[in-house]
């Protein structure tokens, strides 16, 4: 038997596989496909203080080995998440959940986290300072170390629960941002959010996405994500949650070898609703194949000699 347990900021996960925010709703949509209690945890849809409709459609475009999205943080707002979405999530998922929080000002992040404090099932906060699809907020906090530090510091004061800061890859030196977050009280770092991109329809000459630009995800970004996880996990002491294009159990092992303690699976859920289930089922065999009995052994394995 291969041991798949990992510890993420003091909370034990039965396995390191976590569906990524924005690709798994509030969980219950996937409960129609399989028992979601098999997941390590799940990061719910990015939640803001106010309800958000998001961007106009088209919000989605196909890319080689991936996709662009410009959803723009559509969510019902923190109050409805607590009163309507969480009760539905609880029917199907009984483990600590990761609360993904977005905002347009430091105060908004703090207010949203403070409200979510009354929900006991939240194990961690994943503070999204990296959404590329909204204007005047989101990613702007994640591309400047001082602003990233300011959000981290403010949220740190609002909760005793572990906070992970979700970083943008659309920066020159991601390790510098990660260090700024760690120094300001982050308990972990999660990365990467999507890479900013665009597509143009050659027949109309116009961008496919109404928002013009969107975030690239899927297997196309995996090598970029892996490189950044490798760099960040050596730049900070806190645990790193790695994501970006993970599709198979092999990808999970590779991401953990790069330095991730746990992983998030995003776009793969959208093209195969059973993606996370298959990855979790395949993990023991893949680990056995490389002679590993405890998955914790592979974390950061590529850093050594």
């Amino acid at each position: 038997m291969v041991d798949l347990h990992v510890d993420l900021c003091g909370i034990e996960l039965s396995n390191p596989v976590i569906p990524a925010s924005g690709t798994f709703g509030y969980g219950y949509e996937f409960a129609q496909w399989y028992d979601i209690d098999i997941l390590g945890s799940l990061s719910f849809k990015g939640t803001t203080r106010e309800p958000r409709y998001g961007n106009p459609t088209p919000r989605i475009a196909e890319c080689p080995s991936g996709m662009l999205n410009a959803v723009g943080l559509q969510n019902p707002g923190v109050e409805k998440v607590l009163s309507e979405e969480m009760p539905k999530l609880k029917e199907h998922f009984h483990k600590p959940v990761m609360a993904n929080v977005s905002g347009f000002s430091v105060e908004e992040y703090v207010t949203t986290v403070s409200k979510l404090e009354r929900e006991d099932q939240i194990g961690w906060y994943e503070i999204n300072i990296s959404c590329p699809n909204v204007h005047g907020g989101g990613m702007s906090f994640g591309t400047d170390p001082c602003q990233a530090a300011a959000v981290t510091e403010a949220v740190r004061k609002a909760t005793k629960k572990p906070i992970l800061i979700k970083l943008s890859p659309n920066v020159t030196d991601i390790a510098e941002i990660a260090r700024a977050c760690e120094a300001s009280g982050a308990d972990g770092i999660s990365l990467i959010n999507t890479l900013m991109g665009m597509r143009i329809d050659i027949h109309t000459g116009r961008p496919i996405l109404k928002n013009v630009t969107g975030g690239l995800s899927g297997p196309a970004v995996f090598p970029v994500a892996l490189r950044m996880v490798y760099q960040v996990s050596q730049a900070v002491k806190v645990p790193v949650v790695g994501m970006g294009g993970i599709t198979t159990a092999e990808d999970v092992v590779e991401m953990m070898l790069a330095g991730a303690t746990a992983v998030e699976v995003g776009a793969a859920n959208l093209i195969d609703p059973f993606a996370c289930k298959k990855i979790i089922e395949d993990l023991p065999g893949v680990l056995e194949g490389i002679g590993v009995k405890d998955i914790k052994e592979v974390i950061g394995g590529s850093h050594r000699g």
């Binding site: 924005g22 690709t23 798994f24 709703g25 949509e29 996937f30 849809k45 409709y53 998001g54 459609t57 088209p58 919000r59 989605i60 475009a61 996709m67 999205n69 959803v71 559509q74 496919i208 859920n269 959208l270 093209i271 609703p273």
Partner: peptide
């Protein structure tokens, strides 16, 4: 009709404004 990501309600890629609030074309 709308461009979709997943087609089963997970990604919010195909949301539209209706008289009764935001709804997903796929769901």
């Amino acid at each position: 009709e709308e461009r979709m990501g997943c087609g089963f309600g997970a990604c919010m890629g195909c949301s539209i404004q209706t008289a009764e609030g935001t709804k997903r074309v796929c769901r």
